[in-house]
């Protein structure tokens, strides 16, 4: 069972960062996954007093505060306008509305969970993580980094006129995905992310010039490694990745 000795609602990021340098302490997002662990924690660090629960839009980018909930990105009209339904599609299968009202974007990104739909979706876009000390780094780089004691402050998504689409297959509608695929394109430059392999999501970039959707999908799916768990075998996942990448490419207008 999860336990903790103290709870501090911090007044500044500096305070959060300082508290977080102690290994026993932990920053709480929505607590969805944290409380299922058996960890005995020292201090729970709460960022909810810092106004980081807003989605801000500028000419160039969206800035999503780490304490924004999954439900917020699901319903945000700006994200919807800019990227079609990709955010909504990537999170709407996650357990239920109550869960998505609790789970935070910062928690999902920091956790870099293998099953993460959010990470998969964001990786297919031009996304950056803003760390309190580490500054702004590309999400792909962050995803590969070891876990550090820095604080995820914001997620930045560039408005680069990219079209994107998302698909997942699940054994039940609200289960973790067997496979999760996010595909985006800007002209014929493609960015393809595959999650729930079941390792954490990764992405690749491909030039689609002269390739059919089938060829693109075959090439892309072969770039990832796949593993087995309760929800599916490595072989099946490899097959599904190719199928869904192809379907998404077609959805984004790639000819057969």
């Amino acid at each position: 069972m999860f336990s903790a000795r103290e709870y501090v609602k911090v007044n500044s990021l500096e305070e959060a960062w300082e508290l977080n340098q102690k290994r026993a302490n932990v920053i709480a997002g929505g607590m969805m996954w944290l409380k299922m662990g058996n960890g005995q924690k020292g201090t729970i660090i709460d960022l909810s007093g810092l106004g980081l629960d807003q989605i801000e839009e500028s000419e160039e980018e969206f800035s999503v505060g780490c304490m924004c909930t999954l439900r917020q990105i699901e319903l945000d009209p700006g994200l919807e306008r800019e990227f079609g339904g990709v955010f909504r599609e990537s999170v709407r299968h996650i357990v239920g509305v109550q869960f998505r009202n609790g789970a935070t974007v910062g928690g999902s990104v920091y956790g870099r969970y293998g099953f993460s739909d959010v990470l998969t979706c964001l990786l297919a876009l031009d996304t950056y993580v803003e760390l309190y000390k580490g500054g702004r780094i590309p999400l792909g780089e962050f995803a590969r980094m070891p876990y550090t004691r820095d604080v995820v402050v914001k997620i930045i998504v560039k408005k680069d006129k990219r079209q994107a689409a998302y698909a997942s297959q699940r054994n039940t509608k609200t289960d973790f995905p067997v496979i999760a695929c996010a595909v985006s394109r800007k002209a014929d430059s493609w960015r393809i992310a595959v999650g729930a392999r079941p390792e954490k999501a990764e992405y690749i970039c491909l030039d689609g010039t002269g390739k059919t959707a089938e060829e693109l999908a075959r090439e892309a799916a072969a770039c990832f490694s796949y593993g087995s768990n309760l929800r599916g075998s490595a072989e099946y996942r490899a097959h599904l990745a190719e199928v869904y990448i192809r379907r998404l490419a077609k959805e984004l207008g790639k000819e057969a």
Partner: peptide, 14 residues
């Protein structure tokens, strides 16, 4: 399958 996270009883969408 030691939880409702792993033992998937149908939701109303299923």
């Amino acid at each position: 399958e030691n939880s409702l996270m792993q033992y998937k009883i149908p939701s109303r969408q299923d």
